[in-house]
Structure formats: structure tokens, C-alpha cells
Amino acid sequence: MELRVLRYFLAVARYRNITRAAHELLISQPALSTQLSALEDELGVKLFTRGHRQITLTSQGEYLQARALEMVKLAERTVANIHTDDIISGELTIGAGESIGMQRILDVAGGILRDYPDTKIHLVSGDASEMEQQLTKGTLDFAVLMGERPLERYNALRLPETNHWGVVMPTNAPLAQHATIAPADLIGYPLLISAQAQAAHRFQNWWGNLEPQLTIRGTFTLTFNAQLMVRNGSTLVLTFDHLINESLKDDLTFRPLSPALTEPIIVIWKPHTVQSKLALLFIQRLQATLPPTTERT
């Protein structure tokens, strides 16, 4: 498959109309139709269902659309990162979950943007599994993991900051009178917990044999959305510290867990890969902010 043809396909998939796609691509409609038919022949599948006014993607077409977006993005990033030896330019893509510990990383990224005007930084949000998958595919340069993960396949830097688990609750809730929250304190309250933490059974040891008495009403991936559930009185939320949105601080408060439960913050990238000058600069500057005893694997 040629990148040019994949771009043709993506334009048609976006507009669901060959005439509009051909106009954007500055080619004739018959030529575009020929290219799409040739792509279907090459793959041996039908990518579109053609209607009178609009075309729709088949299931194979939807799959190709997702993969083609990744391939085209990777090609564009590769081209953007190829420059002369004496220039720092190109694009850097960093994937991470929500954490106050990102401040160190974003300070480094911000410094690079200020010092090198021909650079761009892209921030991608997601849980650890999503970030690792994108790193493996090559659509991320770096992933930031919130929690322990197997690191044998990566180069890694463990940051000195840690995330502390706790409960977000209404400011006027009875539990807000507690300095810390023990497992027994949560009995009788509806709870939302992180989907990633649930999949990893992160709280199993913390709440122990009290788990059957707790009321888990669901999971979340974005803390801000979960906090809106807290504000409307639906649930309490188990999440990291320092994540209450500024607009909600008058209504919500955070109390840490007891016994304390913490997560490390680890930056990872693929080993045995030729890094762009921009990626190498990011690693160098990030390392320079760390204490000498910081662990690198």
C-alpha cells in the first residue's frame, strides 16, 4: 500500500463522498475511483458500500481507516524529524495518564518549545496499556506510566514524584471531617474507581476482606468527568491527589487513604531505536532535572 493511496482512502472515508474528496485532493473523480478500486483489489476486500448520495465504510474499511491514520501519522512524524545535523526541530509525542507528576515532564517540554521554535509537542492521554500499545506501534516517542509495570522491554526513568491514592468527596460530606480514609470508612458509600486500577486489582490488598461490603458503582478513565459525578452527589471517587479541577475546588475535597497507597511515575521509551535529535534532547534535559540517585533501567 502506498501512502499516497492511503491518504486518498482517508479523504474519502472522512467525507463519505468521492466528489468532495476528489475536490480536496485536486484529482479527478474517475482517477480517485480507480485508485480506490485498485486498493480494494490489492487487499482483496470491499472497503466501501456505495450509495446514491453517500458511501459508508464496511467493517474492513473501518479497520483500515484506523490503521491508515496511524501509518500516515507515523510517516509524517518521521519526515518532520529528518533535518540537518545542526538544527533541533521536528515533533515529539508524549503519552500519559493524569498526574501532578507530569509537571516536571511538561516543564522540560515547555523549555524545549521556548528554545527551539521549529519544534512541536503532542500530548496524548490514556491509561498505561493504551500508552504501551501506542509506544510499540511507534505513534508515541515516550510514555509516562502511573504505577508499577514490567519494564524489561523498555528504557525507563523513574521520577522522584509519586502519586498518592485518596478519595474525592463533597466538601460538606461527613467523611471530609476525616484526615485520612480507611477501608471501613467507605462502607455504605457508592464508589467510582480507576478502570486501570480495577483491572490491576490495585486496591485488593488495601481493602482486604472488606471488599464485599464496599459498593463499586463503576469505573472511570478521566478524573475530571468522574469529579462531576461527585459534585452531583452520585458517588465518591478513588483517584490520585492534586487532580481536583480548579473550577470544582469549592465543592470538592481530597482525603488520602490510610494505610497510604502510592504509585511511581515512570517514563519509558523503546530501546534499540534510533532516536531523533529532539527525543535525545528531551531525555537529556529530563535527566538533568533529576537527583543523582534517580533510577534508570
Rank of each mutant, 00 (worst) to 15 (best):
L192Q: 10
I283D: 04
P183S: 10
P30S: 09
T221S: 14
L43Y: 03
N205L: 07
V230C: 05
Q54I: 08
G101W: 01
L186K: 02
G44K: 06
D127N: 15
S125W: 10
D241K: 04
V274L: 08
I112C: 07
N225K: 10
S194A: 12
R20H: 07
R50Y: 06
I244K: 09
Q134W: 04
E40R: 03
N17V: 01
W269C: 05
L140K: 10
A66Y: 02
Q204V: 00
G218W: 08
D86Q: 08
E42W: 08
A173K: 07
S276Y: 08
A279V: 06
L248F: 06
L47Y: 07
S125L: 10
A11D: 05
L286M: 02
A184Y: 00
F282D: 04
R217G: 06
V274M: 02
V79F: 06
A80F: 09
E148V: 12
V144N: 05
G90R: 01
T289K: 13
S234F: 08
R202F: 14
R114C: 04
I181W: 05
Q227D: 06
A184G: 01
A197Q: 04
L257W: 01
A182G: 06
I105V: 15
E130T: 12
D251S: 14
E152A: 15
H164A: 11
Q198E: 14
R14M: 03
I87W: 02
P30V: 10
H178V: 01
E130S: 13
D86I: 03
N155Y: 05
G233W: 05
E130V: 11
L36Y: 03
Q213T: 01
A288D: 13
D250A: 15
N172A: 11
G110K: 08
F224R: 15
H201W: 00
Y15D: 08
L47S: 09
T215H: 12
F48C: 04
R217D: 10
H83Q: 12
L280Q: 15
R53Q: 14
E98H: 12
L25A: 05
L192P: 02
L257M: 08
K46A: 12
L140N: 10
A288W: 08
V79L: 15
L257Q: 01
G95A: 13
K277H: 09
Q204L: 03
A197W: 04
I18E: 06
N205D: 13
D86A: 07
D86G: 01
S89H: 11
A288C: 07
N163S: 14
A176P: 12
Y154A: 06
R4P: 00
I94N: 10
A260Y: 00
S258I: 01
I105S: 10
M71N: 01
A176M: 11
E161M: 13
